[in-house]
């Protein structure tokens, strides 16, 4: 439904031990494992930088749109495959395997309706005094680690994370425990408190009075949750309902 976003503690190590062998075996059975260019060893989006993640879009028939993959006609995660029900089945299986390692403790945190990839890009630019498309450009061109970590959290599961109606819902992505601590560290460099000063260059009243304060509050929650999870050797998983 695309109604709101929640972050959970994720036991990535157990996922790797318990589920990955089965999931990789399922892909191998369809003769997809060797051919796949889009999935990494954890079956997240294979990427070398931010651009790969920012461009990928979850889709009901799979998030892959590789044009030169020899397996694209038979792959359940490729949009050209002609078997939407098989895509749905595969995606449900992959999602269920990941969800099995979401934890109830530490308790999941509701990050609200506005927490999405594009609003995170806007936030990053807003902190630099930039708005909308300028803010997005700054995010995509960033050389620091934070945008990449946020993109991993929002996009890493995009190949198989699609949920339903196409309003951004689904299993979005995850961070390892090490990355969770990095995220907490990088967010700690920002003043995310309610009385943090606004960048002087921001002109839009809606951004100044509503959007930026709301995103800061969400990110303060995420920072604290990431610190708790990372300290317990747990990763994070992001879901949008």
């Amino acid at each position: 439904m695309g109604a709101y976003t929640q972050v959970m503690a994720f036991d990535l190590e157990r996922y790797r031990e318990s589920e990955l062998p089965d999931l990789r075996a399922a892909l191998a059975k369809w003769d997809l494992l060797e051919a796949c260019q889009k999935l990494d060893l954890d079956l997240g989006v294979k990427h070398h930088g931010l651009s790969t993640l920012s461009e990928i879009q979850a889709d009901r028939q799979g998030g892959c749109n590789a044009t030169d993959c020899e397996a694209r006609e038979r792959c359940p995660f490729h949009r050209r495959s002609q078997a939407p029900l098989r895509s749905e089945h595969f995606m449900r299986v992959f999602q269920a395997k990941a969800k099995a390692h979401w934890l109830e403790s530490p308790a999941p945190v509701n990050l609200g309706k506005d927490f999405q990839f594009y609003t995170l890009a806007w936030w990053y630019g807003n902190e630099l005094g930039l708005e909308y498309t300028d803010a997005e450009r700054a995010f995509l061109a960033a050389q620091d680690r934070l945008p990449l970590l946020l993109a991993r959290l929002c996009k890493r599961a995009a190949i198989w994370g699609w949920a339903d109606g196409g309003y951004g819902e689904g299993c979005l992505g995850w961070l390892s425990a090490e990355e969770a601590l990095q995220l907490a560290e990088d967010l700690a460099a920002y003043d995310l408190s309610g009385d943090a000063p606004l960048p002087a260059d921001l002109q839009d009243d809606d951004v100044r009075q509503v959007t930026l304060p709301a995103m800061r509050a969400c990110l303060a929650q995420l920072r604290d949750f990431a610190q708790v999870c990372g300290s317990q050797q747990l990763g994070l998983f992001l879901e949008r309902h």
Binding site: G2, N110, K113
Partner: peptide
């Protein structure tokens, strides 16, 4: 329809 922490849209 915007709520405080949730939304519905189309």
């Amino acid at each position: 329809l915007w709520g405080a922490e949730m939304q519905y849209g189309f």
